[in-house]
Computed example of a mutant assay.
Amino acid sequence: MKAERILGALYGQALGDAMGMPSELWPRRRVKAHFGWIDRFLPGPAENNAACYFNQAEFTDDTSMALCLADAIIECDGQIDADVIGRHILQWATDFDAFNKNVLGPTSK
């Protein structure tokens, strides 16, 4: 039961993140002017410097960080190890070329 709840939380995060990705970092007024109402998965628009790298239904660094954390916790048998978490985040950032794209939040940087 606990594993199903954790998995459900991760699915919920990924789906919500992918749904909101096209409007990443935009104020509500701009989102409304550009999209009206977002009720389906959309690609990141070219005008959005944070979302332009993402295709329809892709999640952002927010979910990627959660998955890095989950992978690190699994690797450490439930223990929190900042070095292992950092290694997972750095690997993701390198693979995604995140340092050259505007997809990392200030804490992740």
Rank of each mutant, 00 (worst) to 15 (best):
F35P: 00
G44E: 01
L90V: 14
I38V: 15
A57V: 02
N49D: 15
P22F: 01
I74Y: 13
P27I: 09
P43T: 07
F99G: 05
C76V: 09
F96H: 07
S23G: 14
N48L: 02
A9V: 14
A72W: 02
E24A: 03
G16R: 01
W92N: 08
C76E: 13
L104C: 08
R40F: 10
I80T: 07
D39A: 08
K101P: 04
H88W: 07
A14N: 03
W37E: 13
D39L: 04
L10D: 08
Q56T: 15
V84P: 00
R29S: 15
E4H: 08
G20P: 00
G44F: 02
R28M: 07
L42C: 06
D97T: 07
N55T: 09
Q56M: 11
F41T: 03
Q56F: 04
L15E: 02
D17M: 01
E75T: 09
N102D: 10
E24V: 03
P22L: 00
G12H: 03
R28A: 08
E75L: 11
I74D: 10
P22D: 01
N49S: 14
R30K: 14
S64D: 10
D62K: 02
G78N: 04
M21S: 02
V31M: 09
R5M: 15
A14R: 00
W26M: 14
